[in-house]
Design a protein around this nucleic acid. Structure first.
Lengths: 134, 134
DNA sequence: CAGGATCCCAACTGATACTG
DNA sequence: CAGTATCAGTTGGGATCCTG
């Protein structure tokens, strides 16, 4: 069975710990895609953590219908989001963070806080690195 | 200028906030790629946050030389990692978390803690979702 | 030992057009 | 309004071979 160190699961090999592709990756992979964080952010500040499709589309600069749909489906699949469909004409669809989705916000904000604090240093490091390469 | 809400930068549009592709995304994109988290995890538990190339390669199951190199370069570019090259024969290279890299660990662990707690629910949601689709 | 250089494939993303 | 379908471009990732 895997052990835990610093909260990370690993397997004890002959020459030390061996890490494997893991659960955290499969969640970070979602959040790391192009639009997920913006969808989450928009829902995070909405009343009742709830918005309709057109509101999300209008509130995220540059997102296409196709990509918004895909992003929402992925979040729904993970259980972070619930889709509410109203069969009217024209149809109305609202998306709402689930309890689990909302429970992620504090942890996510803790992490994005670090990013905000360190973003200037990261940007500078990148441009220095890229500059030195040329 | 952009405002902040729940720690997130956004632009105030006519019909509410408008979110744009942002800094958090460009960092989460790194962490969301296939190997970065495993490299960070391995370094996080190493003495002095420091390991040589071969130790990282042996400690991460399935990673190829090429992908490890790319992952390390990306982290170095962001200033999270420092590369120490020793011109011996055969050459030895060690990688060490920078102060900024180490400062990310608590925030990252806060987030991965949430993932650990909710991973079973996420997995179940995914399989339910996928099952219903067929 | 620690990589760089190539080639290849799959997946993500986007633009556009169509529809219940 | 809220999608789906299709096509095309780009990127991520892996396999393999070569080198100081």
């Amino acid at each position: 069975m895997d052990q835990l160190i610093h909260g990370r699961p690993y397997h004890e090999g002959e020459d030390g710990p061996i890490f494997r592709p893991c659960a955290p990756h499969s969640v970070l992979e979602r959040l790391g895609d192009k639009w997920t964080i913006l969808v989450m952010s928009h829902l995070a500040i909405a009343p009742g953590y709830r918005l309709r499709f057109s509101a999300l589309k209008g509130g995220i600069e540059g997102i296409t219908q196709r990509m918004l749909t895909r992003t929402l489906r992925n979040l729904e699949r993970d259980g972070l989001l619930k889709r509410h469909y109203f069969p009217e004409v024209p149809p109305r669809v609202e998306y709402e963070l689930t309890a689990m989705g909302a429970s992620m916000l504090p942890a996510l904000e803790g992490f994005t806080a670090w990013i905000r604090d360190n973003w200037p240093a990261i940007e500078e490091s990148r441009s220095t690195y890229d500059g030195a390469k040329r």
